[in-house]
Every structure is written in structure tokens, then in C-alpha cells.
């Protein structure tokens, strides 16, 4: 489901290139939960953004959900992000003025072709189901500010699940959560992997490592 070969990512720092990923190889199959750990600034998030099609400026091969990412144009990459992957971020990245339901609906508003719901009502119903799946029934109309950290992350997961993606990418998903909430989120990831989704989690969190199928270390720009 995820296949990276020799991925190199450089950042231009003043007048010299700084290599963040230096020939990364990664294979992850459907139904696998892979944890990537590493020190701050080691390029974990960058790796995630490359896999998720947010960052197209890299060298090497990257095939995710059957799509060769370097071959995708901007519109195709957006469609890929919309249909094939779901993102979960450490800081939730919810739109603060939208309710939980409206946040969960967002990917559906940008869906095209077969993924597009026929009506806003159908989209709303799917978003409600996604919230129900992450245990937020009855809290659809709450604004993010009126939800706990764990609940906000669940809204973010519901948003990521709306398009029924093949790959879920999580960037320090428990970093801002207490122990109990973090455990709940980790359980959700395990459940999703069991349902056939490929889950790639970038984390410092020891608990994730204990439930992951594989734990990879990113160090010196390479995965070990």
C-alpha cells in the first residue's frame, strides 16, 4: 500500500542544501500499523507529508495506494489527498468556527467523481456516521473549543475517515492528549488497521510502539 524507494528530501537553507531524508525506503502493506519514531527534527513529519501528497518536492520513488506520487499533477494530488489518504495531526487542525459535524464533512465538500455525495444531506449523514464510529454521537453540533483534547482528535480522525481512505497518516496524534484520551485514539488506530487500512503513525509515544506491527527509527535521514 505504501512503497518508498530512495526518497530524498532537501531543504534549501540560505545558500546550502540540508538533506532531511537521505534515501528512505519504506514498505507498508494493507492492514499494517507502522510506527515511525525519531528525534525532533529528524524528518518524521516531512516523511508523512511526502507519503500523503502534501509535499511533492522530493526525489525518488513513492507509490501510495497504487498511485505514483511524482507522476501526479497538482489537481490529481489534491484528489489523491481527498480520496486515498487521511491525515491526523498533533494539533488536531480543526477549523475552530465549524462544528464537529461540519469539520468532519470537509473532505466530502472537495470530493469529485465517484467519491462525491449526491447531496449535502448524504454527506451530512456520512459525517454523522464517522463521528459515531469514533464515539462522538450527540456532540455533532459542538464547536472544537467546547470539546476536550481527546474529543477534538476524534473529530480529526472522523474527518480523516470520511472518504474511507486506504491509508491513514498520523503525525504525533497523542502528543497533546492525556493518557486516557491517547489510549483511546491508539485503540482507534488499531481498529482501523484491523479493518484493512494502512496506518502510518509518526510518534514519540511508547504506547503506539507497543501496539504497532512494526516500529521504524528515522535517524540521519534514513529508516532503520
Amino acid at each position: 500500500m505504501i512503497s518508498l524507494r530512495g526518497v530524498v528530501k532537501k531543504f534549501r537553507d540560505l545558500d546550502r542544501d540540508q538533506v532531511v531524508l537521505d534515501g528512505v525506503d519504506l514498505q507498508a502493506a494493507a492492514g499494517e500499523l507502522v510506527a515511525v519514531v525519531g528525534a525532533s527534527g529528524s524528518g518524521k513529519s516531512t516523511l508523512l507529508y511526502i507519503v500523503g501528497g502534501l509535499d511533492a518536492d522530493f526525489e525518488g520513488e513513492a507509490v501510495v495506494a497504487g498511485r505514483s506520487l511524482p507522476a501526479l499533477g497538482p489537481r490529481e494530488r489534491a484528489a489523491f489527498r481527498n480520496a486515498e489518504v487521511g491525515f491526523v495531526f498533533q494539533s488536531f487542525n480543526l477549523l475552530p468556527a465549524l462544528t464537529a459535524l461540519e469539520n468532519a464533512m470537509l473532505p466530502g465538500l472537495f470530493a469529485r467523481g465517484a467519491g462525491a455525495r449526491p447531496t449535502l444531506g448524504a454527506l451530512r449523514a456520512d459525517a454523522r456516521s464517522a463521528l459515531e464510529r469514533v464515539g462522538l454521537s450527540g456532540k455533532e453540533q459542538r464547536l472544537p473549543a467546547r470539546l476536550s483534547g481527546g474529543e477534538r482528535q476524534r473529530v480529526a480522525i472522523a474527518r480523516a475517515l470520511l472518504s474511507r481512505p486506504k491509508v491513514l497518516l498520523a503525525d504525533e496524534p497523542t502528543g497533546n492528549l492525556d493518557t486516557v484520551s491517547g489510549a483511546g485514539v491508539i485503540d482507534l488506530f488499531v481498529e482501523m488497521a484491523r479493518s484493512g487500512m494502512t496506518v502510518l503513525v509518526v510518534t514519540h509515544e511508547e504506547r503506539v510502539s507497543t501496539v504497532a506491527n512494526r516500529v521504524l527509527h528515522l535517524d540521519g535521514g534514513r529508516l532503520r
Partner: peptide, 16 residues
């Protein structure tokens, strides 16, 4: 800008 980036992360194109 962050909201716009989030919209792009969930599938918005530059045209959107």
C-alpha cells in the same frame, strides 16, 4: 493560511 492549508490537506485544489 492554516485553515487554507487544512482545506488543501483534505483535498482542496488551488482552484478550489
Amino acid at each position: 493560511v492554516k485553515e487554507i492549508a487544512i482545506l488543501q490537506a483534505v483535498g482542496a485544489t488551488a482552484g478550489d
